[in-house]
Amino acid sequence: MYAQMVKSEATNEDPEKLAAFQARIDAGEKIEPKEWMPEGYRKTLIRQIGQHAHSEIVGQLPEGNWITRAPTLERMAILLAKVQDEAGHGLYLYCAAETLGVSRDELTEALLSGKMKYSSIFNYPTLNWADIGAVGWLVDGAAIMNQVPLQRTSFGPYSRAMIRICKEESFHQRQGYDIMMKMAQGTPEQKAMAQDALNRFWYPSLMMFGPSDKDSVHSAQSMAWKIKINTNDELRQKFVDQTVPQAEYLGLTIPDPELRWNEEKGGYDFSEPDWSEFFEVIKGNGPCNAERMEARQKAWDDGAWFREGLMAHARKRAAAKVAAE
């Protein structure tokens, strides 16, 4: 899940308008950009879509870390195409946020200043090639779990972006699992890399869903507005239930001694991740927060002359065209 702990904004508006708005959402109608919406709805969406977009962009970095080290030409091409997709997903999402009256540059500046967040998962390092498999299998797997229901979200542009993203995302998880299979069935060293990757990515993947929100006011409001579809715990349980058999197939061990099937609930019991670590990562103290932000800041700063140069040329051309007419 790329949007974690999105606080919903309180709304202080005409109760009649609010009720009519809620009725539209309850009836399954889509809200479109120029239509009336509560200020809280707008602000919460900007925060959520923005965080989602930032996650896609920062999410390019841990995988990009292995593009130049991919072990075959085909693996290199697949990984490059996948990381490129993430840039595309970020782009679609920024555009969706822009329909709410905020510009991409403003969102970028909010990311770089630390005012806006991105998913905690991308602050973990990719240390061996199997990590690229684990990211596809677990991280994209967890993201898809959240994104599939979001295709039904109430805000039109967000929903359409999610539909496009889900369509493209389907190959990401498969390519990850494909790497894991090759590694798990490979040499003893490869198998060790696969297990090491699972050991390091298991709990951070569980954290992607965010802490339990069953008692959260924010979540209740977001769910009423259909910008959040399931509770964090529901999705986390679903993720664990889906992933455990996949790990078994690979012959890998999930690093949780408490993990066992619970017949009664029809799902696995599992250990909670270390939430104090999660809050530290969110605060900026994770293993890679500083590097990730430095990389984004550098791309932004170093690219300024390029963006300005092209804009200046476009203005010159437009002026020349006007003069010629």
Binding site: I67, T68, G303
Partner: peptide, 13 residues
């Protein structure tokens, strides 16, 4: 490919 994730603007990336 070394630019991937580091280009001056998303469209260019």
């Amino acid at each position: 490919s070394e630019w991937c994730g580091h280009a001056p603007v998303l469209e260019e990336d």
